[in-house]
């Protein structure tokens, strides 16, 4: 990476030269970061501006629609309730999944009893549960939250079970020797020990939760992001529909960014451990 500029300068390097080099590598970095997205946006702009197709509005139309559509009472009426249901469902799935997972991970007989049934539930494509739960819970918030929980639960649960089972035997003996029992054991040994798998499960669960949030509103609802976007499509409000897709995309991106932050905080030690082990080999 630095090879392109480093060869020219020999020995002592002037401060200005170093500054220039830093600036240049920063610029190169920025170009890599923004080059392709900028090119794609420009392409979209040009193609859409020349297009007469009703379905492909120009980018400024979409952006105008975006501001008009979403910076309004829709935030309170549609976006925030959607996000609230997403948060409730996702957190519910996380709590239940980790709790049950720890229980099953430490009880091999119960695990053997339930494993095939749980594998079946994991394999059911979660969207088919929407009609089922609608039957029981109507089309209100409860149904949607339960749909999200019942779809996002399984990756968390099964990954937690796997993580708890994989906790090192020597580590667990050490914890016993030093009197770590009960909640201290859970907090200091079991949860951190299983955290790499738990986080992997939580990551899968996040994308499933977003999918289920959207389609539970698309399938049966009178409000929410998914509902609104489909309404725009049905009423041929094309720029508004595009702005909804854009919003959903931004939402997915933002949540995955948040998750990456969370992950680097929780699993910083794990990355270091992996790197040191790879370095040894």
């Amino acid at each position: 990476m630095s090879g392109m500029t480093g060869t020219k300068t020999k020995g002592a390097e002037s401060r200005a030269g170093r500054g220039l080099r830093l600036l240049r590598s920063g610029a190169v970095h920025l170009a890599y970061l923004l080059g392709l997205p900028a090119a794609l946006l420009a392409l979209w702009w040009v193609l859409a501006a020349r297009s007469t197709n009703f379905y492909y509005p120009t980018l400024d139309e979409i952006l105008a629609a975006f501001a008009e559509t979403w910076f309004s009472e829709r935030i309170v009426d549609d976006v925030l309730p959607s996000l609230g249901r997403l948060a409730a469902g996702y957190l519910g799935a996380a709590v239940i999944g980790i709790g049950l997972g720890v229980l099953l991970g430490t009880r091999p007989r119960i695990r053997a009893l339930l494993e095939p049934v749980l594998e079946f539930f994991r394999a059911v494509p979660p969207p088919v549960l929407i009609p089922v739960l609608m039957l029981v819970a109507g089309i209100g918030d409860t149904m949607k939250i339960v749909v999200i929980i019942s779809g996002a639960l399984w990756p968390v649960l099964l990954n937690t079970v796997e993580g708890v089972r994989a906790i090192d035997e020597v580590l667990s003996d050490t914890a016993r020797c030093y009197g770590l029992t009960g909640t201290a054991r859970l907090r200091r040994l079991v949860l951190p020990g299983a955290s790499p798998q738990i986080v992997a499960g939580l990551r899968q669960a996040l994308s499933i939760s977003i999918i289920l949030m959207v389609i539970s509103e698309m399938f049966a609802s009178s409000s929410g992001l998914g509902f609104t976007v489909v309404q725009f499509q049905r009423s041929f409000a094309i720029p508004e529909m595009w702005s909804g897709i854009l919003l959903l995309g931004l939402l997915g991106f933002a949540l995955s960014l948040l998750f990456a932050l969370f992950e680097s905080r929780v699993l910083g030690w794990y990355r270091g451990l992996r790197q040191s082990q790879r370095g040894e080999k």
């Binding site: 020597v170 580590l171 020797c177 009197g179 200091r188």
Partner: peptide, 21 residues
């Protein structure tokens, strides 16, 4: 009958007996 207080153990597998987190 279970790990008594007042007893400490050092295992061979140092890499696995320290809490990596």
């Amino acid at each position: 009958q279970g790990p008594p207080p007042g007893m400490a153990v050092v295992f061979q597998e140092y890499g696995r007996s320290l809490f990596p987190w």
